[in-house]
C-alpha cells in the first residue's frame, strides 16, 4: 500500500502546518478601530504565520459575551475594570496589562470644533449631541462625568443621542445627524474624521481617567499567538502606532 503511506504523509504535513499557523481573534473596544487595524497589520507583517481577526464593539458588550463563553482570544477594553473583573472571575489566562490612557474630545463634522468648548454645547443652534451609551460604553461614561463635572448635564441632556459604542457615536456625527459628538481622540485623529471640523480636547480633570487594559482570555490558554501579540504591544513599533492615535502610554505623563 504505497499510496496510503503517501496520503498519510501529506495529511501529517498539512496538519502540522495548520498547527503552526495560529489563529488569533481579538475583541477590541471601538475606540481602537483605526489604531488596532494599524497594529494588526504591523503584527501580521512581522508574524506572517499568524492569522489575526479583530472585532470591534463596546467594551461592556464584549465583557458580557466573554462571560457567556465567546471564543475571543484577547480582549482590549476601553475600561480596565472589565478585564480586571474577568481575571477576578477566573476567566482570564493572563494578568491585566494596561496599554493606554484614552482621551475624549468634542468633534464635529460641520462646525469648527476647535472653537467649540463644553460650555458652547448649550448653544440653541446645537440641537443634537452624540455620546456613547454611558451604561456600557466607557467613553460614554466619561463623557457623562465630564458634562456633570462641568455642571452642564441638565442643560445638555435633552439634546443627547446615544451611540451603541464610540464608533457609532462618531458615525452619528459624521453623517451630520448630530452636530457635535463626544468621541475618542483616537478616532478623531483618523485622517477621514480629522479632515472635517477638527476637535477640541476635553480637559481630563473633568472625568475619571480612561485607563485601558487588555487580557488574554482563558479560551486562548496555550495559544502562542496571543502571547506573541501581548509581547508585541510592549514593543517600540506598537507604541509608536498607539502614540500616533493620541493614546497616552503607560508610564508616560499626560500631555495636556
Amino acid at each position: 500500500m504505497p499510496y496510503l503511506r503517501t496520503i498519510l504523509a501529506v495529511c501529517a504535513t498539512v496538519l502540522s502546518f495548520a498547527a503552526q499557523a495560529e489563529k488569533l481573534t481579538i475583541a477590541a473596544a471601538a475606540d481602537l478601530k483605526f489604531a488596532m487595524d494599524d497594529l494588526a497589520n504591523t503584527y501580521r507583517k512581522a508574524n506572517p504565520g499568524d492569522e489575526v481577526d479583530v472585532i470591534y464593539g463596546s467594551s461592556g458588550k464584549f465583557h458580557t459575551q466573554i462571560r457567556q463563553g465567546a471564543p475571543y482570544d484577547m480582549f482590549f477594553s476601553a475600561d480596565i475594570g472589565f478585564p480586571r473583573e474577568l481575571v477576578a472571575s477566573g476567566l482570564a489566562a493572563s494578568e491585566v496589562k494596561p496599554y493606554a490612557v484614552g482621551r475624549i474630545v468634542l468633534w464635529s463634522g460641520s462646525l469648527d470644533a476647535t472653537k467649540i468648548t463644553l460650555a458652547s454645547l448649550t448653544d440653541p443652534k446645537i440641537t443634537r449631541i452624540a455620546i456613547a451609551n454611558p451604561k456600557h460604553a466607557p467613553y460614554g461614561k466619561r463623557a457623562e462625568e465630564a458634562l456633570k463635572t462641568a455642571g452642564l448635564w441638565e442643560k445638555v441632556e435633552p439634546k443627547l443621542v446615544y451611540g451603541e459604542n464610540i464608533a457609532q457615536t462618531a458615525q452619528y456625527v459624521q453623517t451630520g445627524n448630530a452636530q457635535v459628538g463626544v468621541i475618542a481622540l483616537s478616532l478623531a485623529v483618523n485622517a477621514e474624521l480629522a479632515s472635517k471640523g477638527g476637535y477640541w480636547m476635553i480637559p481630563d480633570n473633568l472625568h475619571q481617567p480612561l485607563e485601558q487594559g487588555f487580557v488574554i482570555i482563558k479560551h486562548a490558554q496555550g495559544n502562542a499567538a496571543a502571547k506573541r501579540f501581548a509581547d508585541y504591544m510592549g514593543t517600540k513599533p506598537a507604541r509608536t502606532v498607539m502614540t500616533k492615535y493620541g493614546f497616552v502610554l503607560p508610564g508616560e505623563v499626560t500631555g495636556k
Partner: peptide
Amino acid sequence: LMIGGNIPNKTRVVSVQIYDHVEAL
C-alpha cells in the same frame, strides 16, 4: 438601533432597552 439614538421615551423601544440591560449585565 441604527437611526434611533437610544433616547429615553423618544426612541428607546423595548427591544433596545433589553439590549442595554444585557450589555450592562
